[in-house]
């Protein structure tokens, strides 16, 4: 976290508990030991307001860099698809619908457009390294450690893949 010289105001914030939870906890489970809670029923957490000098998102367009993209796999089956524009179905991604349109030129998939997408996302800009020079960067690398739980944006991913897969099925020779 930033070590700002200014004092960042600390605000005690309580997350409101759902009325349904309050009702459910009125009847405890049969075999749960009746422990006396040592913490207040409403969990408190320290919510800090954004720093006194907020860092507003930039609007300066960043010109494209010369850095080439990492090499992608060459398509294994050239001419696998018929030329044309194919629209996939609208797929439920929980937060909204995802629908893609695939364009095939010279037998290759050359473009995928979102016709529908759950969020209004502003176009991202490259991080201005001058604004927060202490943030480190790294290339992501596959890990093979033992894990209990996975965090990932799975929903939209699956919806995207599903819509694209169906679109490409229409295009397949």
């Amino acid at each position: 976290m930033a070590s700002s010289p200014q004092t960042i105001p600390t605000v005690q914030s309580i997350v409101p508990i759902s009325q349904k939870i309050t009702a459910a906890t009125a009847k405890p489970a049969i075999s749960v030991p009746q422990l006396t809670p040592t913490t207040p029923l409403l969990a408190t957490n320290t919510l800090v307001q954004p720093s006194a000098t907020p860092i507003p998102p930039t609007n300066t367009p960043i010109p494209p860099t010369e850095t080439p993209i990492p090499p992608t796999e060459t398509p294994q089956n050239q001419g696998q698809y018929k030329n044309g524009v194919y629209t996939g179905p609208s797929v439920d991604a929980f937060y909204g619908m995802v629908q893609v349109q695939a364009t095939v030129q010279d037998g290759k998939l050359t473009d995928v457009q979102f016709l529908d997408y759950p969020h209004d996302r502003r176009t991202s800009q490259e991080i201005n390294a001058q604004a927060m020079p202490w943030l480190t960067q790294e290339a992501i690398q596959a890990q093979s450690a033992y894990i209990n739980i996975i965090s990932g944006a799975t929903l939209t991913s699956q919806a995207f893949a599903q819509s694209l897969y169906t679109a490409l099925n229409q295009a397949a020779n």
Binding site: M1, L47, I55, S124, Q125, L135
Partner: peptide
């Protein structure tokens, strides 16, 4: 995420978040 590339800086500005 809605902020795009600025998102990580927003998180950096919040104490108690990584």
């Amino acid at each position: 995420f809605a902020m795009g590339g600025d998102g990580i800086r927003f998180i950096e500005s919040l104490r108690g978040f990584e």
